[in-house]
Simulated assay, not measured.
Amino acid sequence: MSNSEFVQQWVKAYNDKDFDRFASMNTDDVVYTIAALGHAFTGREAFLQHIREYADGVPDRRFILDQVIVDGDLIAVEYRFEGTSSGKVAGLPPAGTVLKTSFCSVLRLRDGRIAVQTDYLGG
């Protein structure tokens, strides 16, 4: 599978709420950072716990893929995140609030899996 196809599968796993498949696309020692929100996790299980928590907070959430740029094992992914807050997660808006933001994820692959993911958050 090409790295562009990998990203398509990554988005599909997220949107399908297939957390096991989504997690399997990461190395055991994946490093995830989103500095704008103060999040940093090391390890697949810690990252998966974060994803599950936010899935509870925004149960109808989805990624909308805009652009993928591939340079070897380095991938930049521009996408939008949309969904409605459940009000269940601290730091997220009250229940019923529609959330829309743009992201750029920089993914570094190792052996066909994400070893490092750094997310940049837009408006």
Rank of each mutant, 00 (worst) to 15 (best):
M1K: 08
S2K: 10
N3F: 10
S4V: 07
S4Q: 00
V7Y: 07
V7W: 02
Q8M: 06
Q9R: 14
Q9L: 09
W10N: 00
N15H: 13
D20H: 03
R21Y: 07
F22K: 00
F22G: 00
S24N: 11
M25E: 03
T27N: 11
V30E: 06
Y32V: 11
T33M: 10
A35M: 08
A36M: 13
G38M: 02
A40Y: 01
F41E: 06
F41Q: 13
F41R: 15
T42R: 12
G43S: 11
E45T: 13
E45W: 01
E45C: 08
A46T: 09
A46E: 06
Q49G: 01
H50I: 00
R52Y: 05
R52S: 09
E53Q: 12
D56G: 07
D56Q: 09
V58I: 15
V58N: 06
P59S: 02
D60I: 15
D60N: 06
D60R: 08
R61M: 14
R61Q: 14
F63A: 08
D66W: 01
Q67I: 00
Q67R: 05
I69M: 11
V70Y: 07
G72C: 02
G72A: 04
D73N: 10
D73H: 05
L74E: 14
I75P: 03
A76E: 00
V77P: 06
R80P: 03
R80Q: 09
F81R: 05
E82P: 07
G83H: 00
G83C: 08
T84N: 08
S85P: 05
S86Y: 10
V89R: 03
G91F: 11
G91H: 11
L92A: 04
P93G: 09
P93S: 04
G96Q: 01
G96W: 00
V98Y: 10
K100T: 13
K100Y: 13
F103P: 05
F103G: 01
C104W: 01
C104M: 14
C104H: 06
S105P: 06
L107D: 02
L107I: 01
L107C: 00
R108C: 09
R108A: 12
L109S: 00
L109P: 04
R110N: 04
R110I: 07
R110C: 09
G112V: 00
G112T: 00
Q117D: 05
T118P: 03
Y120M: 12
G122F: 01
G122T: 08
G123F: 15
